[in-house]
Write a protein that binds this DNA or RNA. Sequence first.
DNA 1: TGCTGATATGCAGGCAGGTCGATGCTGTTG
DNA 2: CAACAGCATCGACCTGCCTGCATATCAGCA
Lengths: 125, 125
Amino acid sequence: MGFVGTALAEMTMPQISPLAGEPIERADAERLAGVLKALADPARLRLLSLIQSAPEGEACVCDLTAPLGLSQPTVSHHLRILTEAGLLEREKRGVWAYYRLVPSAIATIADLLTPPRKRATKKAR
Amino acid sequence: MGFVGTALAEMTMPQISPLAGEPIERADAERLAGVLKALADPARLRLLSLIQSAPEGEACVCDLTAPLGLSQPTVSHHLRILTEAGLLEREKRGVWAYYRLVPSAIATIADLLTPPRKRATKKAR
DNA sequence: TGCTGATATGCAGGCAGGTCGATGCTGTTG
DNA sequence: CAACAGCATCGACCTGCCTGCATATCAGCA
């Protein structure tokens, strides 16, 4: 795998609804899995959390290394994965690289997991 | 993996809110990551989808191997992981093992991810 | 221009995880 | 009781991924 790329964007609003009505296609499953893989790591979850709770909602690598207890290269690596998954966006200012959450990116994932229209459906079949 | 266990249940309702206010603790990050790992696989996402959309909302291994295109041992393996993560529940009837989604298990995960504010809803309504 | 600090990338070791074939278990059936 | 079918488990293979060290990049500065 590793082809995550802009995976999230590609299924952002589609009607795939993973756990909704009919069985999902293999391609959709792979894309959703790709994004979830990016999330399924303690270090990366903490990174998202740290960045999101940072002063301006943004943080540079140097601010994240210490709290995570990981080397700088490793932190950069995780940030890269999160960025490619469409969860973070990077902005380089001077020598620093500031990362911040992509608005509603995670909410999108949550929506994809949450059975679409709950109140209606969920019964008949 | 391995320690996933009833991971979901252990953080079901807590106020950890992964991406909410303050940075999450390492332990919480590991548990959430554990459950997400269970979800972050194409085969498992399709299994959940297949089971959820099956006739009675349940399915036995023999019904899942073909559509997935994986061997029976492999399917059993994935079902085991999903079950240990608290996403599926198993009921053995005769020679067959029926699996079904744990009510609101996935919705719980979605809630944990959905954060920032508008966590309104809790989804009932 | 040369030096220093902040990041990114390359490389490699080690472990986690997906998949399958073989095998063991346990009810079901004749 | 023997034969069989549905599942789980075991062992093994291989790929993928996390992490750190060394190094390459690049911007700011003397």
